[in-house]
Amino acid sequence: MAQVLHGRGPVTATATTTRKRRPFLLDLYSTAVGKKYAMAITGIGLMGFVLFHMIGNLKMYFGASDLDHYAEFLKKLLYPLAPKGTVLWILRGGLIAMAVIHIHAAISLTRLNRTARPVRYQSERDYQVANFASRSMRWTGVTVFLFLVWHLLDLTFGVTNTVGADGEFIRANVYDNVVRSLDRWPVAAFYILANIALGIHLFHGVWSLFQSMGWNNPRFNKWRQAFATGFATVVVVGNVSFPIAVLAGVVGG
């Protein structure tokens, strides 16, 4: 509880404090506003990923061969200019880096914000506009991250998936793997829940990134929240349709 009063007695020369000079990106990243830029920019990258991932997966409605071919296509991006899989790995590397930065910034900002109010309010707060989405970002974020880990184990490494007809997990049989996985209702439920969390995360995050980057203009301000809502809805509806389709037998039935 110990607190130190500042600004007592003669106050001088605070404005002339100079910061330690650092390489440009690190310098930028060292401030809270800089970290918010990092979160916004990586957020945009990850938004692109979830959107295209969802669109790509819509192929499952055209049947197994379409989806499996799409997976193959991703591996062959820019092939034969680049060896098979290279471009995909570059993209994956980028995604991993973005996720790492996004998470690192989130953790350090959360820490900063905790220390900014070491003694909480001792009475109940009555929030006016901070909504569930904005206040649960770290929980929806964690949920999405855990889901991502499980999702990779499930459909990329097959660790948590069931074994296919030929007795082993074959990664290339994307369609089969998806159907086998989502046919288990607890898995489907987790999948749906995580995507709703993703939607809530996007609902605040997409709007928020405009503010963080300073993209604010009376001409488009009113579209920012609408865009965020629309984007979150499209991604969630698309993604949630997959387990429902599998359970309902529309896919894989």
Binding site: G7, R8, G9, P10, V11, T12, A13, T14
Partner: peptide
């Protein structure tokens, strides 16, 4: 405030 920051003025508040 600028002068306080530059050290030209020492401020005693309260």
């Amino acid at each position: 405030a600028r002068q306080i920051g530059l050290g030209g003025v020492r401020l005693f508040n309260r």
